[in-house]
Design a protein around this nucleic acid. Sequence first.
RNA 1: GGCGCGGUGGGAGAGUGGCUAUCCAGCAGCCUGCAAAGCUGUGGACGCCGGUUCGAAUCCGGCCCGCGCCUCCA
Length: 489
Amino acid sequence: MVLHLHNTGSGRREAFRPIDPAQVRMYVCGPTVYDHPHIGNARPAVVFDVLYRLLKTLYPKVTYVRNFTDVDDKINARAREEGVPIAELTRRMTQIYLDDMSQLNVLRPDVEPRATAHVAEMIALIERLIGNGHAYAADGHVLFHVPSWADYGRFARRSTDELMAGARVEVAPYKRDAMDFVLWKPSDAKTPGWDSPWGRGRPGWHIECSAMAKQYLGATFDIHGGGQDLIFPHHQNEVAQSVCAHDGAPLANYWVHNGFVIVEGEKMSKSLGNFFTMHDLLAEFPGEAIRLALLQTHYRQPLDFTKEGLRQAKRILDRWYRLVGDDLRTDDVPSEVQAALEDDLNTPKAISEMHKIADARHLEGIVNHGSPLGGYMLGRMSKQDLVKPMTSPGRRLRAAANSIGLLTLRESQWFGREQSDSLVLTDSVAIEVFRWVEDPRNIEKRINERNEARRAQNFKLADEIRDELATYGIVLEDGPKGTTWRRAG
RNA sequence: GGCGCGGUGGGAGAGUGGCUAUCCAGCAGCCUGCAAAGCUGUGGACGCCGGUUCGAAUCCGGCCCGCGCCUCCA
């Protein structure tokens, strides 16, 4: 099995062939840091994180670049509203984004360039485009001249005629052609700006990605990713700028775009107000549950987001954690899981394979003490599993889940049985109770008292103790091996 | 209007021309002081109409519906 990806550039599923197998290079459009990230921002971060992890298993070196857009008119507007300096707003939102993504087990890319640190490169790129006749300065602006490039529109599968027909904004007088788009625009005294050959100004939206991709990955690299809504105009314009600036060299060989998160059939977006911020969701659900919910839908499909979906994801992880326990060791990634991922990142299929592995985990003890034959006979295992030396299914499950960034904790961590060291309490009324509950020793002591009561057939007292703990969010489970507990949530 | 995506059982969600997807929920049992967890079994689907085929949810044609992009947006 070779990695296959659906390439937006061709509209087809293609075998992935890197330019240089010794170093795979990927660029993903990152967030504009002006607000808290929402679940729709998290989706590409998680999707391309899975791709990044997968590429790392296949190639010795992967260079993953994801930018921060920290110069943008939305940022300017927000900073004005809040009355804070722009740099402070972008610094704060960048940190929040990184913190939220980290809770989703999103690995840090190798390079996370900020647009404002690359203005010189953008200016150089713009000068090149002016020099070779693809851009022109007018009235303090610099514009890319769309008719100068015959292939414009091909990437997004739009003819320039259609684009003309669809143009309904009034055309700025300094534009030579209605489709021309801004590379550089003037800034007034109150707006962030940089000195340039065209006066003090700031970059247009698309040029930063062209400049940063070139700097860190070269004129042509392997994979360019982002959300579907970026195909036009953002990526089309990136392609135009980069190709024209680099003597016709293609920008990226494979374009990968994730689908939207939708709520009740409609696209989740700030303008509709139907979005969930990561901040709110993470207060209610573990990051891994959110990550699993995002990966249960194939990345190119629209993802219908609901809290019920999150609750289901949480339950799945509860069960899996019960199976893998506190043993963090893993095996090789099971072949069926790896194959699903290599098939255009089919994470829902990979997850269904994990369910099958989880089933086999039970059979290990139940059917015939670890012989894989029983599992095979019951149809729970593939023939491939049968010929492989049988190792612990718990480790196989952990390996499988780890490959997409799940099941990274110990069971006792997941269920909150370990002492929390990060708890900061300020409410003086509740603080005693919280302190008591936070210490697992107190809970275990109470469980022992309950079990004594149970032995004495005093079920009334036993149930009282269980109810008492339940009010603190502690769930007890009497199993064959004794009583275990976990924190609900 | 142009371009693109999608319509699968109560819900979520994969997929191959013929072989149980998977998970949740449901139902019937087992286990259990009770509960939870776990285990076993089980019903239920492929938007509509044609066509190709021995056989199509899967291929082709038409239709209906939903969504997205074309303007800042992951």
